[in-house]
């Protein structure tokens, strides 16, 4: 990751005396955020209303955390597409967006999709949502030439579109086909989910919601309770307890990428 870059620009700003006056104006911004209600998600530590500038916010991504998901494929209702629709609506891609009308379906973004798995011998069938698995050892981050493909301290894997050159090597490397390349100019983006032509994108685990202490849109939309979100590192979180209790699978565990999205019932 290009930490180097970041530090450089920080130094420059300190020189220019910019950072010194940051606290005052930061409060102005926070004033607006303070009204936001705080949802207590499963496995998310309670965030007091008085401190909208929770630790997550001010100190940034917390390296003691590892955000993850447990998907119970037995609960995933056949034919249900709620998680996909919720993601589309939240992040402004696919149905409901006026963008990507020139691209064919194979070219349009797919942050999350439902996949049907059928055992060739037994005929047993499962349906499950498939998206960026937010690997602990993400191949996409390893291969990215510029460091645009990156992993936050709390395990969320993102694309830094500021320095993405659109080489698509990460898409070659991803075992889950979780990433999409934007094939045309966009105009209908959501303010919190920037995306644009010539860069690669994928599920962000709804990082903008997670940083506010909320759950990803797909998890919130799942009425059957098949999706559980939380901090895998926190032994007291609901997801950790469940992971300990039921057997879960990593998709393509053989690759050693150690995804943070786990599946049970497979």
């Amino acid at each position: 990751m290009s930490q180097k870059n970041m530090n450089n620009s920080e130094d420059k700003l300190v020189d220019a005396g910019v950072l010194s006056c940051q606290n005052k104006s930061r409060r102005n911004f926070l004033g607006k955020a303070a009204g936001a209600s705080v949802i207590i998600a499963p496995g998310v530590t309670l965030i007091g209303i008085s401190s909208a500038q929770s630790n997550t916010d001010v100190d940034g991504a917390d390296s003691s955390k590892r955000w993850g998901m447990l998907i119970d494929t037995n609960q995933c209702a056949e034919g249900c597409n709620d998680c996909v629709s919720a993601c589309q609506q939240e992040n402004g891609w696919g149905e409901g967006s006026t963008d990507e009308s020139h691209s064919n379906p194979e070219q349009q973004a797919q942050w999350i999709r439902t996949v049907t798995v059928r055992d060739k011998d037994t005929g047993h069938t499962n349906q499950l949502p498939m998206m960026c698995q937010h690997c602990a050892e993400p191949p996409c981050v390893d291969v990215c030439p510029t460091g645009a493909s990156m992993q936050r301290a709390d395990g969320i894997v993102l694309v830094d579109k500021h320095i993405c050159i659109g080489c698509r090597y990460c898409m070659m490397a991803c075992p889950y086909k979780a990433r999409s390349f934007v094939h045309e100019s966009l105009h209908d983006q959501k303010a919190y989910a920037p995306r644009g032509k010539g860069t690669v994108e994928a599920c962000t685990l709804c990082v903008h919601r997670v940083d506010k202490g909320e759950q990803p849109a797909c998890v919130e939309s799942c009425s059957s309770g098949a999706m559980l979100f939380g901090d895998i590192n926190d032994t007291n979180s609901e997801i950790s307890k469940k992971l300990k209790e039921v057997g879960s699978t990593q998709i393509r565990a053989d690759l050693g990428a150690n995804p943070s999205v786990r599946y049970s019932g497979l």
């Binding site: 911004f29 001010v58 500021h162």
Partner: peptide, 29 residues
């Protein structure tokens, strides 16, 4: 200097997850 501020804080927001920043293009808009 707005561009310097934006460039500096975009990395803090995206890479470090520090949300309350001065240089937020969202707030500009």
């Amino acid at each position: 200097n707005h561009m310097e501020l934006l460039k500096h804080d975009r990395d803090r927001t995206l890479r470090q997850g520090i949300r309350p920043v001065d240089g937020s293009i969202k707030e500009c808009v």
